[in-house]
Design a protein around this nucleic acid. Structure first.
Lengths: 219, 219
DNA sequence: ACCTGAACACCGTTCAAGT
DNA sequence: ACCTGAACACCGTTCAAGT
């Protein structure tokens, strides 16, 4: 139902909130500029004063969700694998509450997050022992997986919970995947195996596959 | 340019071909029922005699691309990890030739493949030693990753090749990821018999969370 | 059986105009 | 500065009708 006539100015914040509400309730397919306007009690073009276009609105929505999932940062006293899994799981939980959004997120450059958040994520992997290029690849790997999972689960999450095909629910799939992601990355640091091995945390010069141009910028 | 007046009947095959051509050339956003009709020299509604709706057409398109990537099957004399990586890479290469399709594929149930192909994939993992439930999880994990990668690369592939951010190209990301996927899955099979317990190599055993109801149906 | 033609109910977005 | 109102150029899809 449209709200009654507004007495105060619209805000960008308000528009983003309304967009989030619509997606949460009816899915991303129901997010139209006209629906946002109706929900806020204004005419279709009113929101255009605050956002450039629909893509801009979705970008703001994406960043909002990323923000609500905290940041990826090393924590003393905890294994980095656990910190990573917890963070990715939080992102998955927050994102899957917005049916269909995953399919949009994954098409965005930087997966709908700010460059700043991205750099923090890469930093995380550098801090746990990955050389700069590998840290970038590792971050991308982890993010690609979880966004893939979010997209796959995007429309399942819409339905009444627990589809449980073959006795397995969405939570089982994502937790299994996160364990594999962590294991796959850990095996790179285990200084032993693998052909293109990356030497681990115990110093040791790393022989990298010829990747040029990257510069490590560390605080 | 619209073809001149048709003298023979339309076919479903022809419609799918035209859809593929449009996506390859102009991206999935340019795929409209009207564009397909124009390309085939018919009126907008003609295709509806052969496909139910746009979603149905996209499903056919998706299956077509999956088919062109071969099937996942164990090969004697080759490591299963290599077979897996090769198959996923083929899927990635075929899919990224269709700009924007990834974002659609990943939203489809079964990721745009037939149930038959899915069962074959799960069988692959059973054949290399995963118990039924884990085989399903493993297949889903691998497919989720590669479709995530396809989606992320979907719009990059549109541009003239090799964006090479920070000295890394799309090929580097996907190959790195596939190595991690294989390593993550391999670590489950190490130090365990192919019968029961699936233990992670590092510290904690991956406790099989109460998953019930799965039945192994093997030919 | 196969396709056309006209229409409907939507979209995102432009533009000029109002206050 | 902030928003309205009308319009434009699209969509997917329906329906009845033609051959």
């Amino acid at each position: 139902m449209p709200k009654s006539r507004r007495s105060v100015s619209l805000t960008r914040e308000e528009i983003v909130e309304e967009a989030l509400r619509i997606i949460r309730t009816d899915g991303v397919a129901s997010l139209t500029m006209r629906a946002v306007a109706t929900g806020l009690g204004v005419t279709p073009m009113a929101a255009y004063y605050y956002v450039k276009d629909k893509d801009d609105l979705l970008r703001l929505v994406s960043e909002r969700i990323a923000e609500s999932s905290g940041v990826l940062r090393v924590q003393s006293g905890r294994e980095w694998q656990d910190v990573l899994k917890e963070h990715l799981l939080a992102l998955w939980e927050n994102s899957t509450r917005y049916p269909g959004l995953g399919g949009y997120l994954i098409n965005q450059r930087n997966l709908g997050m700010t460059g700043e958040r991205m750099e923090m994520g890469i930093r995380f992997f550098e801090d746990v022992g990955f050389p700069p290029h590998e840290a970038r690849l590792a971050w991308s790997f982890a993010m690609t997986y979880i966004h893939g999972r979010i997209s796959v689960d995007a429309h399942l999450a819409h339905k009444t919970d627990a589809p449980r095909l073959h006795g397995l629910g969405a939570g089982d799939y994502v937790r299994f995947g996160l364990d594999r992601v962590a294991a796959g990355l850990t095996s790179m640091l285990d200084s032993s195996d693998e052909r293109s091995a990356v030497a681990g945390r115990g110093s040791r010069p790393t022989t990298l596959r010829a990747v040029k141009g990257g510069r490590a910028k560390r605080g």
